[in-house]
């Protein structure tokens, strides 16, 4: 392939590949901006990027082609997917336009911009393609050639890029990390607050008291047998995961009383009979 790269025109194989994969890339790009769900957009974008990776390879940029697949498709797009999962589906996903005239202006500007760009390219008389054969073979390969440039001519830019990456990593951590803005209150402070408010001065009652069970999700019973929800922890209360055993307990109590009544009654009858 490298021999062909020097040529003015590309091989028919490459031309075939360009038209087929180019179509795929454009369709992928269009789907990226037109798909309603962000996940679909991300997948289409990943497809477009893979096609672009192939085009890099076709243009003799072997290193970049591989990096494109590994870094972009493999790392960046996955990061996107993670964030999509984190954010979830929102109203922003709707394709309905809310700003008046925005879509028409956008399309008009896009058309104008694209036509002008194409006109500029067509105007530039880009006939001579030097090809990458010589450049790639100068240091024994594409990767070696790039390495030679990066560590000589572009070494400072490379170092600064490294600093940028470090900064970006730190920045991302700073942005997403949530610092506790105030000190956690101590037991003493909490009890003082309870006294000040005047409600539930003693500690909350433990769950399961008089409930014939001692699981945390069973409310304690008040003297009249009704459940006290305060005894159950807040999270379970909010989730509505409270098991109420009071009716069961009441029924048991009733049966017990009846049974004792019956026994006592029979005993009384026997006493009367003996008298």
């Amino acid at each position: 392939m490298s021999a062909n790269l020097a040529a003015y025109a590309t091989s028919s194989g490459e031309a075939f590949q360009f038209w087929v994969l180019g179509t795929v890339a454009v369709v992928g790009a269009l789907c990226t901006i037109l798909m309603r769900k962000a996940v679909h957009s991300a997948l289409c974008l990943a497809g477009t990027m893979i096609v672009l990776a192939v085009f890099y390879l076709a243009n003799g940029a072997y290193f970049l082609g591989i990096v494109q697949i590994v870094v972009y498709t493999g790392a960046i797009m996955m990061l996107f997917l993670f964030v999509v999962m984190l954010v979830g589906v929102t109203a922003a996903d709707s394709l309905k336009e809310t700003i008046k005239g925005q879509r028409w202006w956008a399309v008009a500007c896009g058309l104008g911009f694209g036509i002008l760009l194409a006109a500029g390219i067509g105007n530039a008389s880009l006939k001579d393609f030097a090809g990458l054969g010589a450049a790639n073979s100068a240091y024994g390969g594409n990767v070696e050639g790039l390495a030679a440039l990066i560590f000589t001519k572009y070494v400072f830019a490379f170092e600064i890029t490294g600093a940028l990456l470090i900064t970006a990593a730190v920045g991302a951590m700073v942005l997403t990390h949530r610092e506790r803005t105030e000190r956690a209150r101590t037991q003493r402070e909490l009890s003082e607050q309870r006294v000040r408010e005047g409600k539930h001065v003693p500690p909350l009652p433990a769950p399961g008291v008089y409930a014939r069970h001692n699981a945390v999700d069973i409310a304690g019973l008040l003297p009249d047998g009704t459940p006290a929800e305060l005894t159950v922890m807040q999270t379970l209360r909010k989730r509505g995961q409270i098991r109420d055993v009071s009716t069961e307990a009441m029924a048991d109590l009733k049966a017990l009383e009846q049974r004792s009544e019956e026994r006592l009654g029979r005993d009384r009858d026997e006493e009367e009979a003996t008298r």
């Binding site: 956008a106 500007c109 896009g110 911009f113 105007n123």
Partner: peptide, 28 residues
Amino acid sequence: QNGYVRSYAVSMFGGTAVLIAATLLMRA
């Protein structure tokens, strides 16, 4: 000035198109 960043982006994009047109025109 509706406060929507996309509206401002359209203006910017349109301005870029005009700049390109001006550049091409000057070169022509």
